[in-house]
Amino acid sequence: MSKIIFITGASKGFGKRWAEAFLKRGDKVIATARNIEALRELVEKYGDAVLPLQLDVTDREACFTAVAKGKANFGRIDVLINNAGFGLFGAIEEATEAQVRSLMDANFFGLLWLTQAIIPVMREQQNGHIIQISSYLGLVTLPMLGIYNATKFAVEGLSESLSSQVKGFGIKVTLIEPNGFLTDWAGSSAETTTPIAVYDGLRQASKERAETPGYKGDPDATVKPMLLIIDHPNPPLRLLMGKIAYPAVKENYEQRLASFAAWKDVSDAAHGSFSMPE
């Protein structure tokens, strides 16, 4: 049976590729973007199978309205893909209040508003799948992306808690955690801070790392994994995407566990004289 899929940020990058893949195989898509004209190509090609909606995800009321329109048009919503967001490149010290708030509004609060809007729909259906496009940088960090890291760490905590809260309603939650890909995320879609010279060495090292051949994945290759996740009866809570993500996360978590173990006596002492129940 075809699915009804609500996806944000559908005008380019991952969102456009995934939306077209869904439509090609016969799914119905509620596609949103800040600029609805950017969705014209999908509408011309797939007609009534796609419902284009202009949406600024930072507007909570607009998020609820968009979900209501999608449900009214197709009768249900099976999958929500919170894909909208952008990157901020620069040292933490360099970021302005406006830049930080704008990034958190788009990457975290926009995702939260749509999640809140979709839960009652899926709870009533007793079925649904919420897919949050996070990042492997919601699990590990890189210098010069600290504010972006913070937004994705917030998405991770929210979504893991959400998973345990809604599974009794038949709602599944999956965090997609890509490493870098050859999309516009690091291009015109991204913002940069005003540089402070002391960070120029780190800035150059970050640039060189990102330009390493093979460091960024092919976004077209993500289509089949996304279809697999949407169709799977028991999808994972987390899925790393790309060959960089897994070894980076593995090394980081091994280091965390080793540090926790090395300081366990101090951790236990901090509990006081209370004994854990048998």
Rank of each mutant, 00 (worst) to 15 (best):
3 K>C: 03
7 I>Y: 05
7 I>N: 03
10 A>M: 05
12 K>R: 15
12 K>M: 13
19 A>V: 08
21 A>D: 03
21 A>L: 04
22 F>N: 05
23 L>A: 09
24 K>C: 05
25 R>A: 08
26 G>R: 06
29 V>M: 06
30 I>W: 10
31 A>L: 10
33 A>I: 15
33 A>Y: 14
40 R>V: 12
44 E>S: 11
47 G>N: 11
48 D>H: 13
51 L>Q: 04
52 P>Y: 10
54 Q>C: 10
55 L>C: 05
59 D>K: 15
60 R>D: 05
61 E>C: 02
62 A>L: 05
66 A>T: 08
67 V>L: 12
68 A>R: 15
70 G>D: 00
71 K>S: 08
72 A>F: 08
79 V>L: 11
80 L>M: 12
80 L>D: 02
81 I>L: 11
81 I>N: 00
82 N>W: 13
84 A>Q: 04
89 F>R: 14
89 F>W: 11
91 A>T: 01
95 A>I: 08
100 V>E: 01
101 R>T: 07
105 D>P: 12
109 F>I: 07
110 G>R: 01
112 L>M: 14
112 L>E: 02
118 I>N: 01
122 M>T: 07
122 M>V: 10
131 I>P: 04
132 Q>A: 10
134 S>Q: 05
136 Y>G: 09
145 L>F: 14
149 N>Q: 07
150 A>D: 00
152 K>R: 08
152 K>E: 01
153 F>N: 01
153 F>E: 00
155 V>A: 13
155 V>N: 09
156 E>K: 11
157 G>Q: 03
159 S>W: 11
160 E>W: 12
161 S>V: 09
162 L>M: 05
164 S>T: 13
164 S>F: 15
166 V>C: 03
169 F>Q: 10
170 G>L: 04
170 G>C: 04
171 I>Q: 01
172 K>P: 07
173 V>Q: 00
174 T>S: 12
174 T>K: 11
177 E>Y: 12
181 F>T: 06
181 F>R: 11
182 L>P: 01
182 L>C: 04
182 L>Y: 05
184 D>A: 06
186 A>H: 13
187 G>V: 06
189 S>I: 09
190 A>I: 12
192 T>S: 14
197 A>L: 11
199 Y>M: 01
200 D>M: 02
201 G>N: 05
201 G>K: 04
202 L>I: 08
205 A>D: 02
207 K>R: 15
209 R>Y: 07
211 E>A: 15
212 T>M: 06
215 Y>W: 13
216 K>D: 00
223 V>L: 09
224 K>R: 14
224 K>N: 07
225 P>G: 05
229 I>Y: 08
232 H>K: 10
234 N>Y: 13
234 N>K: 15
235 P>S: 01
235 P>R: 03
237 L>E: 00
240 L>D: 02
240 L>G: 02
245 A>K: 00
248 A>V: 09
252 N>W: 14
257 L>C: 05
258 A>S: 12
261 A>H: 12
263 W>D: 06
265 D>F: 09
265 D>P: 07
269 A>N: 10
270 A>M: 15
271 H>I: 10
272 G>V: 03
272 G>D: 02
275 S>E: 05
276 M>H: 11
276 M>S: 10
